[in-house]
Computed example of a mutant assay.
Amino acid sequence: MFSVTVRDHMMVAHSFRGETFGPAQALHGATFLVDATFRRAALDADGIVVDIAAAARELNAILAAFHLRNLDDDPSLAGRNTTTEVLAQVIADRLVERVHAGAFGPGARELAGVTVTLHESHVAWAGYERGL
């Protein structure tokens, strides 16, 4: 399996519901380093997994919807604790929607999967992997 990863970041504010989260139940900020990895079994006719520029552009566009915003106010996330794991899934799902919409070009039709990893710090991260 071949893979290509692009990286970006976002800074958000959010709060959590539930005793599990202790002080994080209050509004707080988080900065995430975000990796999006695209996989496929065989390279396309151009010898690539996916157009890296398109992958970077699409990841940036998805993160721009969250960057410097309070996630508690985002209607698309209403009713969910915006944990690192949940955000990884939301971003991966939106990337797959953009692949299916053609934003990555025709070569992306053969992608097998996408993995999104959000790094909370240099010692903690979470991710979500899904097929296409």
Rank of each mutant, 00 (worst) to 15 (best):
F38Y: 13
F38N: 01
F38V: 00
R39W: 03
R39V: 02
R40A: 06
R40Y: 08
R40N: 04
R40F: 07
R40T: 09
A41W: 12
A41M: 08
A41V: 10
A41G: 11
A41Y: 11
A41P: 05
A42M: 08
A42Q: 12
L43S: 08
L43A: 09
L43T: 13
D44T: 09
D44K: 05
D44A: 06
A45N: 09
A45P: 10
A45L: 10
D46Q: 11
D46T: 13
D46N: 09
G47Q: 06
I48R: 03
I48K: 01
V49D: 04
V50W: 04
V50T: 07
V50Q: 03
V50G: 02
V50I: 14
V50C: 04
D51A: 07
D51Y: 08
D51I: 09
D51P: 00
D51H: 11
D51R: 11
I52A: 00
I52Q: 00
I52R: 00
I52L: 00
I52M: 00
I52E: 00
A53W: 03
A54D: 07
A54Q: 13
A55E: 04
A55F: 04
A56D: 07
A56Y: 01
A56W: 01
R57V: 02
R57W: 02
E58C: 02
E58T: 12
E58R: 06
L59F: 10
L59C: 07
L59S: 08
N60K: 15
N60I: 02
N60G: 13
N60D: 10
N60C: 08
I62N: 03
I62R: 07
I62G: 02
L63R: 14
L63D: 08
A64F: 03
A65S: 09
A65C: 07
A65R: 11
A65H: 10
A65T: 15
A65V: 15
F66E: 01
F66Q: 01
F66N: 01
H67N: 13
L68R: 15
L68A: 10
L68V: 15
L68T: 15
L68H: 15
R69Y: 12
R69K: 14
R69D: 14
L71S: 12
L71K: 12
L71F: 13
D72W: 02
D72Q: 08
D72Y: 03
